[in-house]
Amino acid sequence: MTRSALAGRLVGALVTLALVVVIVFGIAGALADPAVIALGGGAPVDEVARLRHAWGLDRPWQVRLGELAWGLLHLDLGLSRIQQAPVSALIGRALAPTLAYALPGILLALALALAGGLAAARRPGGPIDRLVNLSATLLLSTSSVIVVLAAHGLLARRLGLFPIIGWPLVGSDAAAAGLVVLPALTWALLQLGPDLRHFRALFVRELDAPYLDGLRSRGIAEARVLGHALRGASGPILARLAARLPHLVVGSLVIEQVFNIPGIGGLALTALRTGDLALVEGLALLLALVTIVGQLLLDLAAAALDPRLAAGGER
């Protein structure tokens, strides 16, 4: 990536981020009144007005948007009035439980999907390919609710192979390591369907490339040829990983609900149930920031891995 391309990318990311702030603020301000949501639909008008004044919602929108932007510059996401705590602190506390199962899960799914996609793409239409296609279709078309309930109900509750919760209860000194195994496996299973398909299609294209025949004709071992194909496809693989980033930080609502994990998904659900608009806004902004920065970093990594991209060429 050249210097000017990098600068363009940075400016683009900043613009996107600013637009996210405006969209979230605009939609939340246009469609809902936090005071009404907090008090319930049937609350008396003067009661709502009192709360709006106490929360500073009766000031002009320019002032409130400016306040939000000023806070964001200091990484301050405001205050959750329902939970009486700063939004950033609430999210920070929820990040570890989510990452504990989502990170191993996503890495496992990535490894399995890369291996499966490569094995399938070596002989398109062969038995391995058909098996991979069938399992990808089945996984892809099964609702996450079913997968999680079946895994939890059968493996953890019925057969007792795994603990039934995914994170130590408050005040318990049990280690988290054993608890996150089943949530991580389930999370990997949920990701595997689309990833398998994606990487199979990617490798079918990549393995057709003439440079691999060139390598084979010089007598390079097949395993090393596949290693070259893997590096040749590194750009799209990283792009896929970038597209998966939001899933990584949000995790799965169903897994967190069923396994009782106090993570980001659970936090979002709590916000939904208690009508905590500030928390939903904070989550949207912070997670958008993570997504945009992550994409930027992975773009840079792709350019470093693939000299064709670094030279400003197209793939």
């Binding site: 996107t16 637009l19 969209i23 899933h247 949000v250 609502l253 998904g265 939904l272 949207a284 945009i292």
Partner: peptide, 23 residues
């Protein structure tokens, strides 16, 4: 394009829950 990028940057689950809360 800018609008698409911005909407796509917010995790869909948060958008979905946010709309359900608001509507």
């Amino acid at each position: 394009i800018a609008l698409t990028d911005a909407v796509a940057a917010i995790p869909p689950l948060i958008t979905l829950l946010g709309f359900c809360l608001v509507l």
